[in-house]
Design a protein around this nucleic acid. Structure first.
Lengths: 226, 226
DNA sequence: AAATTGTTCTTCGTATACACTTTTGCCGGA
DNA sequence: TCCGGCAAAAGTGTATACGAAGAACAATTT
């Protein structure tokens, strides 16, 4: 069986449109392109060094993901993360991530738990080093991993896109909460390891409530501008 | 603010890519393009009578929505609705739509309830006429409306895309359950009208459990083919 | 029969063109 | 000065063509 499709030449070829999409997302999340900013196709094409076509295709997906808003004949502008309030986002996360925690608890293998523990360690270390961007990154990695362990592809794909927005809100403000939340992560992983779905769900809920409260506090000043 | 952007001339112009996307989705949902079928850009362009560009852009979004799978350098094939099992889908719907029902109960205006009742009536009538496609359509319309009434844009947008897949599974099999489920819909709308969030959530849950059971029964034979 | 080579089909990206809309900036007039 | 309106500029939407590269499949050779 020549099942080496994974290593075929073309399979590892990342189409430009995907690279552009990734670059565009990170640029938006990192605040290089600010909410409300106009994104003309020519400008993006130049920024990324490609032609208009890959840019256009990336823009359509970015729109579907909610990172840009496209008005017919007027072009794309960076969406406002506040549109779709923070509270609404947390309400959905609460439903989704608690389910993920429960499923993960019921299905996690020893290897899965080990991977989570490893992330936990790296997170603690990064926290000690006060490396906030890294902490935020590991925070995302941990949650994404739990989603994946849950084994529910719908959950996983929905939450993945949702989580990019979480990061966006995070970066624009409450990054300093990340260290604080790390203790809750340990509770969550412990609960998953125990295999107790109810307990895992409770831990996830507690974590989200705390994060939500912090986000609100932090948002008092920040958003809604434009 | 003179935010009359909605009624500007160009604003009501539907770009071809959007029309193509809609047509593509319905073609897939209706089974005109079958799971596993190869979709070459030229073929689609010809089918829809447009050039390749709008097709490509529509394909990227369809991929993001999970209706097609795109393999680099090999093109797009229609996804299998079974990928991401039915059970997984219902698990997510349960979390999301119960929340929607609760929020809708808490926020529904009299006009909202009236709109739901109107859909209910149309549904009853279509059921009596044994017009199954129409019943399925109204079923979606009702659920989508509840989502919208919930007022949570995240919930709404996520569930909207999820619901297209629900329809897909539906059409490929369990369409005959729709009439049966109509009684549950009445319960649900009653609960929403009452303003009792808990009760609405319970009604939504009951509805989903019944739908899930029916889907399972119906799926025994059907999917996973190819 | 197995391996190799060619041929063809497609996708991917670029470039170009052009119609049509929106935006902008300028101008003259009140 | 401020206003309205008009014309140029900018930008999107769509179509088309072309070349490069990979994948699929058939033909050929070993």
């Amino acid at each position: 069986m020549a099942e080496d499709l994974r290593n075929k030449l073309g399979a590892q070829h990342l189409p430009l449109r995907d690279q552009v999409l990734t670059a565009l997302r990170t640029a938006i999340i990192d605040g290089d392109y600010l909410p409300g900013e106009r994104l003309t196709e020519d400008r993006l094409a130049e920024d990324f060094g490609v032609s208009r076509n890959p840019v256009r295709e990336a823009l359509r997906v970015a729109e579907a993901e909610g990172f840009v808003v496209i008005l017919p004949r007027r072009g794309a502008v960076v969406a406002s993360p506040s549109s779709g309030t923070i509270g609404d986002m947390f309400a959905v996360r609460e439903r989704l991530e608690t389910l993920a925690a429960r499923l993960a608890a019921e299905r996690a293998s020893a290897a899965d738990v080990a991977a989570l523990r490893a992330l936990l360690d790296q997170g603690r270390e990064a926290t000690e080093r006060q490396d906030l961007p890294r902490v935020a990154e590991l925070n995302s990695a941990l949650h994404l991993r739990i989603l994946q362990i849950s084994g529910n592809p719908w959950l996983s794909s929905i939450a993945k896109s949702l989580y990019l927005h979480v990061q966006w809100v995070f970066r624009l403000g409450a990054e300093q909460r990340a260290p604080h939340s790390w203790a809750e992560h340990i509770q969550l992983v412990d609960a998953i390891e125990s295999g107790d779905g109810d307990r895992a769900e409770r831990a996830a809920l507690a974590h989200l409530d705390a994060a939500s409260a912090a986000a609100y506090e932090n948002a008092e000043g920040g958003y809604g501008a434009r």
